[in-house]
Each structure stands twice: as C-alpha cells, then as structure tokens.
Amino acid sequence: MTPPFADELNLRLCHRCKYACSLDRDRHRCSRCNALLHRRKPDAIARTWALLLAAFVFYVPANVLPILRTTALQHDSTTTILGSVVDLWQDGAWDIAVIIFVASVVVPVAKFLILAFLLVTVQRRSRGSCRERTQLYRGLELIGYWSMLDVFVVGLLAALVQFGVLGDIEPRLGILFFGLVVVLTMMATLTFDSRLIWDAVKDER
C-alpha cells in the first residue's frame, strides 16, 4: 500500500518547521510557526537554473586564476586549485592530494551534473527512478559544503605563514570565485524542490 500525497488530503508542509498544516484551517500561514506556506518552493526550477548557471560561470575563473601566492627569499610563485593538487601529489602527499581533489574538483562538478540532471528530468516530467533521484538530491545536501575546504585552507595558511622575507602566503582572486561557486551551488540545492520529482507520478494516479 502506498501512502497518500499531501495534496490528496488537503494538507501542506510548512517549509520552515515541517508541520503538517491542514488547508481547511490555515490557508496562507503555518499555524505553528507563522511562516508563509507554499505548495512547492516558489519558482524552484527557474531559480535553481539561474543559480546553477551563475555558479558554472564563476567556476571558470575559479580554476584559471591562482588561489594563493607564495613568496620566500628568492622564490615567488602562484598556484591554482589543480596546480596545488599536482604539487601535493609530486611531494608524495598523495592522500591529501586526493582529499583536495575530491573536495575542490569532484564535488563541485558532481553538483553541477546532478542538479542539471534533476532539473532536466523534472522538466521532462520523467516518471522513472524517482526514489533514486530523490536519494541523489539528499546526497547533494550532504556533500554540498565540503567544497569549502580549499577556502578554509587558504585562509588558515595565509594567517599562519607571515614571516616577511622568510616566507609569506597571500590569498589570490581565484579563491574568491571558488568560494562563490560553493555558496551559489549550495543556494541552488536549497532552492530546488525534490517533491517536483514526484509530481509526475502523482498526476498519473
């Protein structure tokens, strides 16, 4: 036996406090927390596309521009995200290289692909593998913020290594774009509504 959908019982979920509001009683606001009620998150598809595209545009300078600059005595060098992974690998710190590669490259790219896939399938009103697509969405919520790793590492390194002529580390513009990519993809994940996946199934019933 499959459970009923909220619409069929004239109920509506409050996004903020997750209360099951009865539409017979409260039409516009949650009776428990007073937040505005929406059937689905407002304009979910358009907003998610917009945030996703903005993140994708920023992802280019995030990878092309250097994220930090190292100066020490005679040396003066800048590194990009991929450059820092390669450097770590060549220094023999392959474990840390893998962690940074996953957090800074695999996770953002996976977020782009998964969100685009979910948006396209929702817009095509696909009815297949709804359960798996919902699980993908929950996965996005879990991994989303781990990409901030590189931003925190740059901040900590820049705060620590300040020895004047003996050595200095300074943040560079690339890290700003990368941080914005992470924030924008997190916002895109939050504005998407996974219940849209199930709307196609419900209309069948």
């Binding site: 499959t2 459970p3 959908f5 909220a6 069929e8 209360y19 099951a20 709804c130």
Partner: peptide, 13 residues
Amino acid sequence: SSDLIICEYCDSV
C-alpha cells in the same frame, strides 16, 4: 494534523 508527518522530500503523508 499534528499526528501526521509529511515527508519533506516527496510529500507523502
């Protein structure tokens, strides 16, 4: 309705 739970991911009650 406070005895009911709505799944926030798929709207099942």
